[in-house]
Design a protein around this nucleic acid. Structure first.
Lengths: 224, 224
DNA sequence: TAAGATAAGATTGTATACAAAAAACATAAG
DNA sequence: CTTATGTTTTTTGTATACAATCTTATCTTA
């Protein structure tokens, strides 16, 4: 574990939520590595709080799929095997397709403009080679589509799936040769939505997820 | 709240898990009603434990979508509007379809036999008119299909979606006139899987979910 | 040396105490 | 009668204390 774990106290939130966000970020950024133990006292000391909010945050991470706990042994950062990744991506493919289809019917002109802007921002971010910015741009783009479905339950699940992939997704975004493909796919998605062309959109979405799947799996294989 | 809330202590589990299961059951059975406050001290006294495991259980219920908490005001049993139900069912339709398609390719002969047995058990349970038994039979039937996908991430999400519907689903099962339809659909599902007929299966699955959707929505409308 | 028992330390599980905030109630002013 | 204000009570938030369990190191014995 890095020792740069500090709380962001600006918000007026219960400590459990602040701790939850802090640990979540740390896991997604890779500061807390898969398999690493989450020891209550250690974390409490480091973050300057008592064990109580730590424990509650761990319960939350658990349900989010980011931590795994064995009773009386404690929690650790969830590991992701290639199989896990495939499973997540299989679900994501189905739900991304669902989201795209709903979006196709319901997206407003305003949201479509927003989406185009997000695409251009994403394109611009690719030039900066700032991974964090690129990742954020990509998230923003897909969020607009998700939100346009008007189905918060779907949005929650999709965000959770994305979260589970995030750690490895970042690796994918480090490889510049993926950028042209990624951009082209985003353009195709915008086009599909503009033309209300469900078939084209569906095809593009599947390709978009499949490409990520391949890349992410390659990364995992390297790591193992 | 009813006052018949007691802990099932037989398992050697942390109290938080026992409390979680107890509250979960109570919510699903309707003993704890939507909108009802979950007060820590009250629950702790009733269940004979301290507030600590209660609080941790509430954090878990929260992530499960069964409870909603407002910081410094406390938790309450999640309410479900007709819109929420539609949203859940929309996702479930997509994922049931996915599960069916995977099952079609992967289900083993052994699992198929199990499924037929589950169907007959379900048929038998319909005659007893014991709602709990009928609900369990239905769950068992679909579980076999879910498990046959070999995708635990998918199974978790489907179970969670089912859980969110459960409270209203039980009402649906109280109406005997639904039984023949339900049984016919189960038979069609088994047939589709036996014949590896994806199209037939997909069509049946959609119909199965849509029928429930209509019935459940009617129930909610009545309640409001 | 290896296997097993045992004791010491570390870690989680649970209860409780105290602080802070919100809610409920009562009272006074307009 | 209504609104504003202050006080009490209830409830949540957090820290801490103690108990139960697990881990690790040490020692014993074959």
């Amino acid at each position: 574990m890095t020792d740069e774990l500090t709380l962001n106290m600006d918000a007026y939130l219960p400590l459990r939520d602040v701790v939850f966000n802090t640990l979540r970020e740390a896991i997604l950024k890779g500061e807390l590595k898969p398999g690493e133990r989450l020891m209550e006292l250690q974390l409490a000391t480091k973050l300057g709080v008592s064990r109580t909010p730590i424990r509650e945050a761990i319960r939350m991470l658990e349900q989010e799929g980011l931590a795994v706990t064995v009773p009386r042994k404690g929690a650790e950062v969830a590991k992701m095997t290639e199989k896990d990744m495939e499973d997540v991506l299989q679900v994501r493919e189905a739900l991304d397709d669902l989201a795209a289809k709903i979006a196709c019917e319901q997206i407003t002109d305003e949201q479509l403009l927003e989406l185009e802007k997000a695409m251009h921002d994403f394109e611009a971010s690719l030039l900066t080679k700032d991974i964090k910015k690129i990742a954020e741009g990509d998230v923003k783009f897909h969020d607009i589509i998700y939100e346009s479905t008007g189905n918060p339950k779907l949005v929650i699940i999709l965000n959770n799936l994305r979260e589970q992939l995030y750690r490895y997704r970042v690796e994918y975004l480090k490889d510049e040769k993926n950028y042209p493909i990624l951009l082209k796919e985003h353009q195709d998605i915008v086009e599909g939505l503009s033309l209300k062309d469900k078939d084209k959109l569906s095809e593009t979405m599947h390709r978009h997820v499949k490409n990520q799947a391949e890349a992410v799996k390659a990364i995992i294989r390297e790591q193992e």
